[in-house]
Amino acid sequence: MATVKFKYKGEEKEVDISKIKKVWRVGKMISFTWDEGGGKTGRGAVSEKDAPKELLQMLEKQ
Rank of each mutant, 00 (worst) to 15 (best):
K7A: 04
I30S: 00
G39E: 14
E11A: 05
T33W: 05
T3G: 02
Q57W: 11
F6M: 02
E36I: 09
M58K: 08
K21A: 15
A51V: 06
K9F: 09
G38N: 07
L56W: 12
D35R: 09
K22A: 15
Y8V: 05
K49D: 12
G39Q: 12
I20R: 00
S47W: 05
R43C: 15
G42N: 07
K19S: 09
V26L: 08
V46F: 02
D35H: 12
L55M: 08
S18Q: 09
E12W: 14
L55F: 05
M29K: 06
K53W: 14
K49Y: 12
T41W: 15
T41R: 06
A45G: 13
L55E: 00
G37A: 06
G38Y: 04
A51C: 14
M58A: 11
E14D: 06
F32Q: 00
F6W: 03
S18V: 11
Q57G: 07
K13M: 09
I20L: 10
E12G: 03
S31F: 11
G10S: 03
G39T: 09
K21G: 15
V26I: 11
K22S: 15
V4S: 00
E12Q: 08
D50E: 09
K5H: 03
Y8F: 04
K9A: 04
Y8M: 02
L56V: 13
E11F: 07
K7F: 06
K19Q: 10
A51L: 04
T41H: 13
I20K: 00
V23F: 08
A2D: 06
W34P: 00
K7Q: 05
G39K: 05
E12A: 06
E11T: 07
K61L: 14
K19C: 14
I17S: 03
V23W: 06
S47V: 08
E36T: 11
A51R: 01
L59C: 13
K61D: 12
G39S: 14
V46C: 05
V23P: 02
K7R: 13
G27P: 11
Q62P: 13
T33I: 13
M58H: 05
G27K: 09
F6D: 01
K13T: 05
E14G: 01
W34I: 02
M29I: 08
E36C: 14
E36Y: 07
E14N: 04
G42A: 11
G27N: 13
E48T: 04
V23T: 13
T33M: 07
Q57S: 08
E60Y: 10
I20W: 01
F32N: 00
K49L: 10
G10C: 14
I17M: 06
R43N: 14
I30F: 12
I20P: 00
T3D: 01
K49H: 04
R43T: 15
I30Q: 00
I20Q: 00
M29T: 05
I20N: 00
Y8G: 01
G37D: 11
G37K: 08
E54W: 07
I30K: 00
T41Y: 13
G10M: 02
A45T: 13
S18H: 09
E48R: 06
K61E: 10
K22Y: 15
M1F: 13
E11N: 10
Q57Y: 14
G27E: 08
K13V: 10
G38R: 08
M58E: 11
E36W: 11
K9L: 05
D50R: 09
G38F: 12
M1G: 11
I17V: 15
D35P: 12
E48G: 05
E11R: 11
K22T: 14
A2Y: 04
K28V: 08
G38I: 07
I17F: 02
V4N: 00
K5Q: 03
A2G: 10
D35E: 05
P52G: 04
R25P: 03
F32D: 00
S47G: 14
S47T: 09
E60Q: 13
V15P: 00
K13R: 10
W34N: 01
I30N: 00
V23K: 01
G42S: 08
P52H: 04
T33P: 00
D16V: 12
E48D: 13
D35A: 09
K49V: 11
G27C: 15
I20T: 02
I20Y: 00
V26Y: 10
L59A: 09
M1Q: 15
K5S: 02
G37Q: 10
P52Y: 02
K5P: 01
E36S: 11
K19F: 13
S31H: 09
T33K: 15
S18K: 09
E60H: 08
